[in-house]
Amino acid sequence: MSESTQAWVAAGVRAVIGAHTQAQDAGRTDDIVALYTPDAILELPGMEPLQGHDALRAAFKGWEPTQPQLHMVGNTVVTSSGPDEATAASDVAFFHRGDSGWTVQVVGHYDDRFRRVDGTWLLQRRVTTFQA
């Protein structure tokens, strides 16, 4: 795969990760779900895996913020296995603003798998782990 294709894949994947983070922190559930393939799987510690748009919509609707929150995602490494498939590994810190200001609630890691569908990059699987 050419260097320009790899850069294009990485840019597309990072755009999905950023759009997901922005939509999640703003409570835009439908925008989040639109970033996943219809058969996508989301794995979170302590929960059964969520699969498909209906399960994702119900979960993210229940997680809509009631107070300001911020997911800071960084250290993302994208690996492309072709022009239509990629993986990404990212670190994440979740902040919540309460009466005493911003505090870190959770530090974790995302292992993501992406697929390009009709020219659009979508999350196919996200596995989230939390750091102790």
Score class of each variant (00 low, 15 high):
1 M>W: 08
5 T>I: 15
7 A>E: 14
11 A>Y: 10
11 A>R: 13
13 V>C: 11
14 R>W: 07
14 R>T: 12
15 A>M: 01
18 G>R: 11
23 A>Q: 05
24 Q>G: 14
27 G>R: 14
27 G>I: 15
33 V>F: 01
33 V>Y: 07
37 T>K: 09
39 D>R: 13
41 I>N: 09
43 E>G: 15
45 P>M: 01
46 G>E: 11
47 M>K: 08
49 P>H: 02
50 L>Y: 13
53 H>I: 03
54 D>W: 06
55 A>T: 07
55 A>V: 09
57 R>Q: 07
58 A>G: 06
64 E>K: 15
68 P>V: 12
69 Q>M: 14
71 H>D: 05
75 N>E: 11
77 V>Y: 08
80 S>R: 04
87 T>G: 05
88 A>N: 01
89 A>F: 05
91 D>H: 10
98 G>C: 06
101 G>P: 06
102 W>F: 07
103 T>S: 07
105 Q>D: 08
107 V>H: 06
108 G>A: 06
110 Y>Q: 07
113 R>A: 10
115 R>F: 00
116 R>F: 02
117 V>S: 02
118 D>I: 01
119 G>M: 06
120 T>V: 08
124 Q>E: 09
124 Q>Y: 01
126 R>K: 04
126 R>T: 02
128 T>F: 06
129 T>S: 10
130 F>K: 03
